[in-house]
Simulated assay, not measured.
Amino acid sequence: MSDFWIFFKLGLNHVLNFDGYDHILFLIVLVVAYVFKDWKRVFWIVSVFTIGHTISLALSTYNVISVRVNTAELLVYVTIIATALYNIFTAGKNNNKTKIVILLVVALFFGLIHGLAFSNYFKEMTNGIESKLLPMLEFALGVEAAQIIIVLVVLLLSFVFQTVFRFSKRDWVMVVSSIVLGIAFHIVDANFL
């Protein structure tokens, strides 16, 4: 049972680690356009993202695919930038008409990219462990739990800013997405260019 908590906490810390806040930035722009009544859609998008994350982590852990860490980390920021830009260009439009299948496919694809960025560290953590499947699932549960925490915080902030401070949904999405976009561009410029 203690092994469960080791990998579960590793998954939690992977998302909630403020030193590597790429995951938090991505989750912010992924769900900033939603409100609490959209919880089913948000749940599926975030869960499918976790599935993609776990698939690429498994493929890398079992040496089916290999990507340089720097390349994977750059691609993570590309997903953040792409999602923020999508939000900015579609803010104020009725995004609920966007087909859920398209959103799920994009979330899965972006999850695959994010999982690759963490795969080398996960391989080191499971080095010497014969079966890596159970630790990987425990890690995925930790990731999902942490993502739910971040999503709830973002939805709560959205609620507060849109109801208490009277931000329009369009303005809220544009401001938050623009801030995340600026942070992501700065990180790319400082670390990859």
Rank of each mutant, 00 (worst) to 15 (best):
S47Y: 09
S47Q: 14
V48L: 14
T50Q: 03
I51F: 14
I51P: 01
G52W: 09
G52L: 10
H53S: 04
S56P: 02
L57R: 02
A58K: 00
Y62C: 05
N63D: 14
I65D: 06
S66G: 12
V67E: 09
T71M: 07
L74W: 12
L74C: 08
V76N: 04
Y77P: 08
A82N: 03
A82C: 11
A82I: 03
T83E: 03
A84M: 02
Y86Q: 07
N87Q: 08
T90P: 00
T90G: 00
T90W: 11
A91K: 10
G92H: 12
K93M: 12
N96C: 01
N96A: 07
N96V: 00
T98F: 11
T98D: 15
V101Q: 12
L103K: 11
L103T: 03
L104C: 03
V105N: 04
V105T: 08
V106A: 09
V106R: 06
L108Y: 11
L108R: 02
L108F: 15
F110E: 03
L112Y: 04
L112F: 10
I113P: 08
G115V: 11
G115F: 13
A117M: 10
S119P: 01
N120T: 07
N120E: 14
K123T: 01
E124R: 09
M125E: 07
M125I: 06
T126C: 05
T126R: 08
T126A: 08
I129K: 13
E130G: 12
K132S: 10
K132N: 11
K132Y: 07
L134M: 13
P135F: 05
M136R: 02
M136L: 15
M136N: 02
L137G: 05
E138T: 04
A140I: 01
E144Y: 06
Q147E: 03
I150H: 00
I150C: 08
V151H: 07
L155C: 10
L155H: 02
S158I: 05
F159G: 12
V160I: 15
V160M: 10
T163P: 02
T163V: 11
V164Q: 12
K169G: 13
R170L: 05
D171F: 11
M174N: 12
V175D: 08
S178C: 06
I179G: 07
